[in-house]
Simulated assay, not measured.
Amino acid sequence: MGGRRHARPANADDLLSQLGRLTARVREEIEVQRARVELAEALQRGMLPATLPTAPGLRVAARYAPAGNGLDIGGDWYDGCRLSDGTLAFSVGDVQGHDVEAAAYMGQVRIVLRAVAAMGATDPGDILATANELLAATDNPLFATCLFLCFDTRTWSVRTARAGHTGAVWARADGVCGIVEHSEEEIGLPLAVMEGETYAVTEYRFTQPGALALLTDGVVEGPRFPLEEGLAAVAQVLRDGVFEDPETLADRVMEVTGRTGHTDDAAVLVLRHDGPEACQTDDAAPEGVR
């Protein structure tokens, strides 16, 4: 009966060769990860709008942050366009999932919303309802939440509708701030979940200078923060910086993600408005905002 054969002890050359192979593998994985980051950034740059509409007395800024460590491609978006009646339309939304399919579907949702608006629709509830019908009729299993806002700078009135999305946050020059509230019945289902869904519209009017932030839940919700605390933190940022330029405000709102321990991608759109001159001293709260 022969003795057990023992493995030959590795010499220095063997160890160096093995270390070289491991180093090459690590370098290859780093390059793959770097390529994924570049792909994610390129997709977002290509799909998100290069410019956003503005008007006298209204300035707009937006920000996007990728998911987690930046390696996941997300489906959050922001957008803005001018409607046929001259009002300005803005939207933010969040597509289910974090992959190339989610990013591609995000582009599809944005195109559908723009197409509906281009056909002459001016009511945010109607725009969401029509977009929902078109998206629900496809075979894509994904869905998207969305907040759609129409801003009429002639009357300084705002109309919003929500498809399962986080509410907008606002602040006024007098230091009052809060969240644009909708009842549970007024918040419709996410887009593409069910055909025939309707979306209620909340309308209110700005009476003095202030700021309004549309955002996705990646900004205000995470392992360290419940949603309510995140929204309160954004309201505080808007209140403290209500007279600052929108670019600075957008940066500071996005910094809230650092407190939440955010692992989702995040989008922010800030409207900094001067308010109608005739109402600069009106202390009444905008109708519909509590």
Rank of each mutant, 00 (worst) to 15 (best):
F206Q: 10
F206V: 11
T207C: 09
T207M: 09
Q208V: 05
Q208H: 06
P209Y: 01
P209I: 06
P209G: 05
G210V: 06
A211D: 01
A211T: 03
A211E: 01
A211Y: 09
L212H: 12
L212Q: 07
L212S: 15
L212I: 10
L212G: 08
A213G: 08
A213L: 01
A213E: 00
L214H: 07
T216G: 14
D217N: 04
D217S: 09
D217L: 02
G218W: 01
G218M: 05
G218N: 04
V219P: 08
V220A: 15
V220K: 03
E221W: 14
E221K: 13
E221N: 12
G222Q: 04
P223L: 04
P223E: 10
R224P: 07
R224H: 14
R224V: 09
R224S: 11
R224E: 11
F225A: 13
P226R: 15
P226N: 15
P226H: 13
P226S: 15
L227A: 00
E228K: 10
E228W: 12
E228N: 00
E229I: 02
G230K: 14
L231D: 02
A233Q: 06
A233F: 01
V234M: 04
V234C: 07
A235T: 03
A235I: 07
Q236P: 06
Q236C: 14
V237Q: 05
L238E: 00
L238P: 03
L238Q: 06
L238Y: 07
D240G: 00
D240N: 09
G241P: 00
G241M: 06
G241T: 00
F243L: 13
E244K: 15
D245C: 15
P246A: 12
P246E: 03
T248C: 02
T248I: 02
T248H: 04
T248F: 01
L249F: 09
L249G: 04
L249R: 08
L249H: 10
A250V: 05
A250Y: 03
D251E: 15
D251L: 14
R252H: 03
R252Y: 03
R252P: 00
V253Y: 03
V253K: 08
M254T: 05
M254L: 13
E255C: 06
E255P: 09
E255D: 14
V256T: 11
T257H: 00
T257F: 07
T257W: 02
T257E: 04
T257N: 04
R259W: 07
R259S: 09
R259H: 12
R259L: 15
T260G: 13
T260A: 15
H262C: 14
H262P: 00
T263N: 12
D264K: 13
D264S: 09
D265V: 12
D265I: 08
D265P: 12
D265M: 08
D265L: 07
A267I: 01
A267V: 04
V268F: 05
V268G: 13
V268T: 10
L269G: 05
L269Y: 10
L269P: 08
L269N: 08
V270R: 09
V270P: 02
L271I: 01
L271T: 10
L271N: 05
R272Q: 11
R272N: 15
R272G: 14
H273I: 02
D274F: 05
D274T: 10
D274A: 15
G275K: 11
G275I: 10
G275S: 06
G275E: 05
P276L: 15
P276T: 01
E277M: 10
A278T: 05
A278E: 13
